Simulated assay, not measured.
Amino acid sequence: MAAPSPSSYLIPNTGSNARDYCMLERNLLSHLKLALLLSVLSASILLRARLVPVKDAGKEDGGLPLASLEFAAAVLCIAAGGWEYYQGYWDLKTSRPFLVAPKLHLTIMSFVAFVVFGTCIVLLVLG
């Protein structure tokens, strides 16, 4: 049986490769789920589903800045998840250790967490 070529994308299942790959997929799906929830929150704010602050309820574009921020956070979450998946897959493929989380991913997800926390405060205080 011939050995696979170096350019092959097949990774031999030795050690914890299968578990690591499942971890990468699970993390990507978690990012997509968070992005979906943020986009639903953005749509709820735009459709005034009892989430628009009372002082903005009469305005035609009331809640648009907050909804735009939520949607931007959703897009950033998808980008961060995709980048983390790609980097992890590349590390797995080249047999590099990837236990240390990338700093760029942490920075982007910190911004997303700040947006979520800020939205909670805004909706509680102004709502």
Rank of each mutant, 00 (worst) to 15 (best):
L126C: 14
A2I: 13
Y21L: 15
S42F: 02
G118I: 02
L32E: 12
L41W: 10
E84P: 02
L34K: 08
S7H: 12
L37K: 13
T107I: 15
E60M: 07
I11R: 03
A72H: 10
E70S: 15
E60R: 11
S16R: 08
S44A: 12
V125H: 07
L29S: 08
S44P: 00
T107L: 15
T119K: 02
T14C: 07
R48L: 05
L28Q: 09
I45H: 00
V112G: 01
K93M: 11
V52E: 02
F98I: 03
Y89F: 09
D61Q: 12
P102I: 03
S5I: 07
L29F: 09
R26F: 06
L37W: 04
A72R: 12
L124C: 14
A74Q: 03
S30C: 11
A18D: 08
S110T: 15
K59C: 08
V54A: 15
E60I: 14
C22G: 09
F71N: 13
L69P: 00
A73T: 00
S68W: 06
L38T: 04
L10W: 07
V112F: 04
K55I: 07
D91P: 03
L126Q: 10
L32W: 00
L28S: 02
G58R: 02
G118R: 03
S95A: 11
L123W: 03
L123N: 14
K55Y: 11
I121C: 12
V40R: 05
Y85T: 01
M1R: 15
G63F: 01
L37T: 09
G82H: 01
S110W: 02
R96F: 01
I11Q: 05
A49H: 09
P53K: 01
V54D: 11
S16F: 14
N13S: 11
R19L: 10
G118L: 03
V52Y: 01
D20M: 09
L99Q: 12
G15F: 07
A113W: 08
A3M: 13
I121G: 02
K93C: 11
A101L: 12
L51C: 08
K93S: 08
P4G: 02
H105L: 10
A57G: 03
V54M: 15
V40A: 08
F114E: 11
A57I: 11
I78Q: 13
